[in-house]
């Protein structure tokens, strides 16, 4: 992995899951956080830190209609800059004024304030593309999710 990893290298079969059923936003954050943890990006301290951040700072982690981007600080247990993405079925409320309910959850951990910028820029472009968002929502399996995210040439 390079020092500025790209999203195609970060979102892989190990770090995505499609159509996850959860009881609510906390379980959704736990599920996507577990993927970060199992991939070796974060310690077990990171999931509680992401949940605490949402409780303390509010639901602005819901960045767009149906899309949440929970994260915490580098010092909250980030080992390597990493991303994980799950889709939810059913969608759950995070408490956002305008963007609930959420069915796409992207979690990330950053080792500093720079290393994740390239990947973040790519994610913004994917989330800003309605066709890609529709394909992400339609994906039934991790494999389909990767095709929706990265295209067919993976």
């Amino acid at each position: 992995m390079t020092s500025t990893p790209v999203i195609a290298a970060l979102l892989t079969l190990d770090t995505v899951a499609a159509g996850v059923s959860t009881a609510g936003w906390e379980e959704a954050v736990e599920t996507v956080g577990k993927l970060l943890e199992q991939a070796g990006f974060t310690t077990d301290n990171y999931i509680p830190a992401m949940k605490r951040t949402i409780k303390e700072l509010g639901p602005y982690a819901v960045i767009a209609p149906g899309i949440a981007m929970p994260h915490a600080r580098p010092e909250d247990g980030v080992l390597l800059t990493g991303f994980a993405l799950i889709t939810l079925d059913p969608a759950v409320d995070f408490g956002s004024q305008v963007n609930d309910p959420v069915d796409i959850v992207l979690a990330f951990g950053a080792t500093d304030k720079q290393t994740h910028i390239k990947a973040l820029q790519e994610i913004a472009a994917i989330f800003g593309n309605q066709e890609k968002i529709s394909a992400i929502r339609a994906a039934q399996t991790s494999q389909e999710l990767l095709v929706a995210l990265h295209g067919l040439n993976q």
Binding site: T53, E56, L57, G58, Y60, A61, I63, M69, H71, A72, R73, F108, A110, K113, H116, I117, L120, Q121, I123, A124
Partner: peptide, 16 residues
Amino acid sequence: LCGMGFGTSMMLKLTI
């Protein structure tokens, strides 16, 4: 602005 200064706010900065 965002809660931590490198996630949401960074994404906004790049777009702006």
